[in-house]
Write a protein that binds this DNA or RNA. Structure first.
Lengths: 336, 336
DNA sequence: TTGTAGGCGTTATCAG
DNA sequence: CTGATAACGCCTACAA
């Protein structure tokens, strides 16, 4: 395996010149550049990325911290990230986290002496220590779908989105609207729900009082949604519309409703959250979260922060919109 | 940022001892080990992974080459890979490929002077040059869902699986069974379909002749399936059952059928392929491909190959099975 | 069991 | 513009 020294010898130049050619430095005469390029080709030389990372104290790698619970949106997000990476010579290191302790370890590993130049942190709230350590020893981090003013964040306004969904149901005539919410932090069951505030605000805005048990926290995934609906339907006055905090939960709600013989949207209206594309054929009315765009924006922000670590962190919001399909309708007379 | 030398000084030992402690070498007295550990803690020292990778000529990284077309199975696969990685100190580098040229570059980048110690290659056929280069300069590679006898491969027997699906339809009484197939290599539209052979064998085995136009190649995804069904339903004698080569295509078939007013399974039976979990609520009858297990097995094989590059490559098959749900039934009298 | 010295392949710095 | 040369931080002999 040839090294830079072999190339230098082959081309009859100094090793510095070869390095400059490799790094597209303008400080090389065209003649020598050609000689070096030819030598590289003859020897089939490839620079060692390990040596490079070591030498320039930069790995050309971005780290992605992602909870393993993640649903199908991950793909879309990955595409967005890759989109932003095209043309750069950065690659992506994926580190998945299953449990809270994995997260601690991942945070720990990623910030000090990282294998990467920066990190993308998905759908999980940074711990206090993490933020403190980052303050002490800056390392570029961008949060996705979670906001922390002390760090770069790219997210949507969950409150506005949830409000929009609830208002839509209210507009259809529903008064018994329930929320199947999701913890902001998958690893922390004491963390608030992402949609709770928007839900309450929308109800308050319409002068509708919040019935007991209508605001539920559920596990992510279909199972969580299904269980939540079961609970809701056991209430003395079950809701006529349900807003879910994820499409997967919405599917669970849908299934559980069907199981009980409730038809959607005749007996129950459902709004999802995220537009995960796998629910298209279900005709799920949902909040469209521009996941692809979030991934791209976050990656761009991270690359920027890597290039200029002194830039003050910003929070970037992306707009959501309601995607009306076929799981919502007016409440049924007998039940509404 | 402290280095190993700082730790050595702090602990009052030689740098070699620190290195040995870091690498869990048994050749350190318990006493010194403790002193070193304490020094490490005091200094909050973390070894530089870049320097490590450089020094030991091993990156502790596995590379994942994945076509961006990939559907929801990717998540399950990723989980399988991560499962196999738990307990090792390997991390995963993801390199996605959008077009055929990306693939060339990815193959190129991954084998010579790679940033990784080995590579997992998904759902895409290795090019001739790739295999040749690998033969000349060994670099551990494991193929997933594609088989090449010259390399490690983990896959299912598509022929057996497709046969099983077709036989199931035949057993229900169908005689007009069509196939919506998928190219073995997403980047090569001249590559054969993954299910074609099993399809034909099953028909032949039952003495059913293959009608013109019943074996179709389709693009991956719902759109491909939908388009393929449109074509099939335009035939003078449309099929009464369709076997698809992916769940996503099956969903497309399902949607297109519904669009045309055909009910499933009354007017049309559908079998999917892969059990992608997002089709559960559709009740799709499908071939269960153990994607998680494939990811895990492939990663284990790769780790093995990294540890012992001299081991001869093997092909590992994982069994599939038919998952009967609700999209198949006997052919309708008037149409069957 | 321990410390020391050399090497890994680049990049960066510095004279020329 | 170019070529030496010194880091870079760790690992691995080798010698003690």
């Amino acid at each position: 395996m040839p090294t830079i020294a072999d190339v230098a010898r082959e081309a009859g130049v100094g090793i510095g010149t070869v390095s400059r050619v490799l790094n597209n430095s303008p400080l090389v005469s065209e003649q020598l550049r050609q000689r070096v390029l030819a030598a590289i080709a003859r020897l089939e030389y490839r620079p060692s990325s390990a040596a490079r990372a070591f030498g320039r104290r930069r790995t050309q790698t971005l780290e992605l911290l992602v909870p393993l619970f993640i649903g199908s949106l991950f793909l879309e997000l990955l595409r967005g990230i890759e989109d932003a990476l095209v043309g750069t010579d950065y690659t992506l290191l994926a580190r998945t986290m299953k449990r809270a302790e994995d997260r601690e370890r991942a945070f720990d590993a990623c910030c000090s002496r990282s294998r990467a130049d920066g990190a993308l942190v998905l759908w999980t709230v940074p711990t206090r220590q993490f933020v403190e350590r980052l303050a002490a020893d800056p390392f570029p981090v961008v949060l996705l779908n979670v906001v922390d003013p002390r760090l770069w964040s790219v997210a949507v306004d969950h409150t506005a989105a949830a409000s929009r969904a609830v208002e839509y149901c209210l507009g259809l005539g529903h008064r018994r609207v329930a929320l199947v919410d999701r913890h902001l932090d998958v690893f922390d069951s004491t963390s608030p729900g992402i949609c709770g505030r928007g839900f309450r605000e929308a109800l308050a805005g319409a002068g509708v009082s919040l019935a007991d048990g209508y605001q539920r926290m559920a596990e992510p995934g279909q199972a969580g949604g299904a269980r939540a609906l079961d609970a809701l339907l056991s209430l003395p006055e079950p809701p006529t519309a349900v807003v879910a905090a994820s499409d997967e939960q919405a599917v669970g709600v849908f299934l559980a409703a069907r199981e009980r013989g409730w038809q959607v949207p005749r007996d129950l209206s459902i709004v999802g959250y995220s537009d995960s594309q796998y629910t298209q054929y279900l005709g799920l009315t949902t909040i469209d979260v521009p996941v692809h765009e979030i991934g791209r924006a976050a990656t761009r922000a991270l690359l920027g922060a890597v290039a200029d670590p002194s830039a003050a962190p910003r929070t970037i919001y992306r707009p959501t919109q309601l995607l009306v399909r076929h799981t919502c309708g007016p409440p049924r007379a007998g039940r509404g």
